[in-house]
Design a protein around this nucleic acid. Structure first.
Length: 359
DNA sequence: CGACGGGACGC
DNA sequence: CGACGGGACGC
């Protein structure tokens, strides 16, 4: 569908249609503010006058389509769609990108005409890109335990004293529309986010009965993998077959994980209320993630759960994790094969999980 | 040289 | 209703 934008001349017609639609619905849109506006001013930020960040792009949109869309405003110096960097092939879009114009006035007009544009049931956000820097990375916080009465603005007001908020979101229950007491806040700088964690984690908002939790958000890969795992688990428990392929494609889950989830049948183990055999994996690198555990253990049989243990604040792996496998023989084979396995520059130690008290 | 988890992570 | 930080050996 987006291919039409590239392939056919009547782009203006297409845009006009989309644009009128988006104007009609503009009130529903939020996070359309320009997160960088506070830093723009005077004659600072030379490249930021031409360089834009584009968020909430449709999954199917390609880099060429991104360039094509923004070329309708003016001459584009470069367009970059950000894709994941998994060793596996697909390299699918992360849903955002950068467009750098030759002319600052074109960048400005691109914001005024394309910000809020609806594409494929998405509403894109177009704003000036902040100057590239390591200091702005990993500045997204996850907040839980908020009073249900706190609105997005309330939460922002609580956090804004620690820095400049780029965007925020309060999660609401699908059915009731009420707050789930969970929010995300992205600060401009990681240091600002760190200050907010230090000062607000474990604190009670005014009038609240319970303290809130403030920590760095997991990256979306981790979150989606975890979510998908539990979805697959529940789907599979209810009935075999079903919408597994659809879900797997939608979330682009690790191929290993998907393949072997299919083999997961009866999950109850005699004498154990929690199903399966829990395996302890030690000496994982700090950047280890769930997908590597699926890849390593999946080939040995039915894996029902994987978990990388991370530091609460930094989200870096603490060096170990757990894998649950349904069948004893397969678990034993995995342990025998993977204990002593070299992952990166580390030699793994793999064994059945011991009870909590000992080493 | 470090060693065994545990609400909630996206309307 | 949505992944906000790429890629870069050139100037």
């Amino acid at each position: 569908m987006l291919g039409l934008i590239v392939s056919f001349p009547p782009l203006r017609t297409y845009l006009a249609l989309c644009f009128s639609a988006h104007l009609a619905d503009l009130q529903e849109v939020y996070d359309m503010s320009n997160g960088y506006e506070d830093h723009m001013g005077g004659d600072e930020g030379k490249d930021s006058k031409t360089n834009l960040i584009v968020n909430y792009l449709p999954q199917s949109m390609t880099q060429d389509e991104l360039r094509s869309l923004f070329s309708s405003i003016g001459e584009v110096e470069s367009a970059k769609l950000i894709r994941d960097k998994v060793a596996g092939m697909p390299r699918h879009s992360l849903g955002y990108g950068f467009v750098n114009y030759l002319n600052p006035s074109d960048a400005d007009r691109a914001i005024s005409t394309l910000n809020g544009l609806r594409l494929q049931s998405k509403t894109i956000k177009v704003s000036y890109a902040r100057p590239s820097s390591d200091t702005i990375k990993d500045a997204n916080l996850y907040i839980s335990g908020l009073p249900k009465s706190m609105t997005q603005k309330d939460v922002e007001d609580m956090f804004s004293r620690y820095g400049h908020i780029i965007n925020s979101r309060v999660l609401v229950d699908q059915a009731t529309g009420s707050s789930r007491g969970v929010a995300f806040i992205r600060f401009d700088k990681r240091a600002e986010a760190e200050e907010a964690v230090k000062n607000l984690n474990g604190q009670k908002p005014p009038g609240a009965a319970e303290p809130i939790t403030v920590k760095f958000a997991a990256n979306p890969n981790q979150a989606k993998n975890t979510q998908l795992i539990s979805q697959l688990y529940h789907n599979q428990s209810r009935r075999f077959g079903g919408p597994l392929h659809h879900q797997a494609q939608r979330f682009r889950f690790s191929p290993m994980g998907v393949d072997h989830m299919g083999g997961m049948g009866g999950v109850s183990v005699p004498g154990n209320s929690t199903s399966g055999w829990c395996i302890f994996i030690y000496n994982l690198g700090q950047d280890a993630d769930e997908s590597i555990l699926w890849q390593m253990f999946g080939p040995f049989g039915a894996v029902t759960n994987v978990k990388v243990i991370r530091d609460f604040n930094t989200n870096k792996c603490k060096g170990f994790g757990f894998v649950t496998m349904t069948n004893y023989e397969e678990a034993a084979m995995a342990i025998a094969s993977l204990n002593g396995y070299r992952l990166g520059d580390k030699i793994l130690q793999v064994s059945f999980k011991t009870s909590k008290g000992h080493k």
